[in-house]
């Protein structure tokens, strides 16, 4: 049961962070960053397995691989940006976190533009 290990890791890190937050808040923030990274790294491999299955399915459905790649990039950007924004918000810098989310939204929009263009192109084909 991997979830037990991860919950235990999180609880231990939370207790230690509360202990240290009183006189060294910057180290408590770095501790929470390290804990978050460890929990994320532990489950990232499983996401990779799911993504492989998705890729195989899309190949079987003879989808264009460009679309799945764009989708995966968007999901990755969202994960990383959410991670950074939450850490900034935890450290009391909500404004920087909001800017990170803003940047992520723009990057996702840039990635999504080719797909929107393709949709519009196929719509134009349908119109006589």
């Amino acid at each position: 049961m991997e979830i037990m290990q991860l919950v235990g890791l999180g609880l231990v890190a939370a207790v230690l962070a509360v202990t240290i937050r009183h006189n060294k808040p910057e180290l408590a923030m770095l501790l929470s960053v390290a804990t978050g990274i460890m929990i994320f790294l532990a489950v990232l491999g499983k996401i990779g397995a799911v993504i492989d299955v998705l890729k195989e399915l899309s190949e079987r459905a003879s989808l264009n691989m460009v679309y799945l790649g764009t989708l995966l990039k968007i999901v990755g950007i969202a994960y990383i940006a959410d991670f950074g924004a939450q850490i900034c918000r935890d450290a009391g810098e909500g404004a920087i976190g909001a800017k990170i989310e803003f940047a992520a939204k723009i990057l996702v929009l840039v990635l999504a533009v080719p797909i929107v263009a393709a949709v519009l192109q196929s719509l134009l084909k349908l119109v006589p």
Partner: peptide
Amino acid sequence: QVRSVFKL
């Protein structure tokens, strides 16, 4: 890791 998993 994230870059290699999501092909970023």
